[in-house]
């Protein structure tokens, strides 16, 4: 099966600061792909570069949907949203001054048809948001904000969702709620690329995972396997796990 998202040799950064140095990755339709690695590895930048928020200097990003192939390298976000991608930033990811309802409707800007019906459907899954619809999003708790940010992204009916550290700064119970949403979205067939600081949490759930270090690919493999890989555990997970089976270090430094 051809990948839905295919990143090849991507070098990108901000202004004149290069961050990514030839990173490659793919996500097949319906899979959950984790991007892990130490601080400053370029995980978030990878998502931003795919979503047109970082400056791409070389490399290619290809998106496939319904048999059509789009070279989306360097496209601006609103065109990507219309094509079926969406991205949830790590922080500052709701419009604090707008009501929850307006936040949701805003998510449908790129696909305005039947936005209200879609919002109603989403409010079945994101029940707690219904009770705060008319409150400004700035008044929500951290967990509610994260739910709102994900729900807003879903308002554009994406087939590929890019998530930047959805667990950052959340209380453990809220982390559970957010990952519950993700499990459901995955079962509904959404393709997810997720960056997480909490690598254990995400590797256990990822069909495939990439370990980045210093802006380059380091390891890749099925999530649970990487979780068992002694070197990965030692390097990025702080040791202490029952690392027994060494997994394949696919596509290490190129």
């Amino acid at each position: 099966m051809l990948p839905m998202l295919q990143v090849t040799g991507l070098s990108a950064g901000f202004e004149d600061v290069p961050v990514l140095d030839g990173v490659s990755m793919t996500a097949t339709p319906g899979s959950t792909v984790a991007i892990v690695g130490p601080n400053g590895a370029g995980k978030s930048t990878l998502l931003k570069a795919v979503y047109g928020l970082a400056r791409v200097r070389s490399g290619r990003v290809v998106f496939r949907r319904d048999g059509a192939e789009h070279d989306i390298t360097g496209w601006p976000p609103h065109r990507l949203t219309a094509l079926g991608l969406n991205y949830v930033p790590q922080t500052d990811n709701v419009f604090a001054a707008l009501s929850v309802r307006e936040n949701l409707l805003l998510g449908a800007t790129a696909r305005p048809r039947q936005a209200l019906a879609r919002m109603e459907r989403l409010l079945v899954e994101f029940g707690p948001l219904r009770t705060v619809l008319d409150r400004p999003a700035g008044a929500l708790s951290g967990g509610q904000r994260q739910s709102l940010a994900v729900a807003r992204a879903l308002m554009s009916e994406p087939v590929l969702l890019l998530l930047d550290e959805p667990s950052a700064g959340l209380a453990p119970s809220a982390v559970g709620t957010v990952f519950g949403h993700l499990a459901r979205l995955r079962s509904e067939g959404l393709t997810i690329v997720i960056v997480e600081q909490n690598a254990r949490l995400v590797l256990a759930r990822a069909d495939n995972a990439y370990v980045l270090e210093g802006g380059r690919n380091r390891y890749e493999g099925p999530g649970p396997e990487l979780l068992q890989d002694a070197r990965v555990v030692e390097l990025y997970l702080g040791g202490g796990a029952h690392a027994t089976t060494p997994a394949t270090p696919a596509a290490a430094d190129q």
Binding site: L53, P77, P89, D92, F95, L98, E102, G107, T109, R152
Partner: peptide, 14 residues
């Protein structure tokens, strides 16, 4: 209004 509140997020949201 969304753009006034948070321009980068407005772009992200489509």
């Amino acid at each position: 209004r969304a753009f006034a509140d948070n321009p980068e997020l407005a772009a992200v949201a489509g």
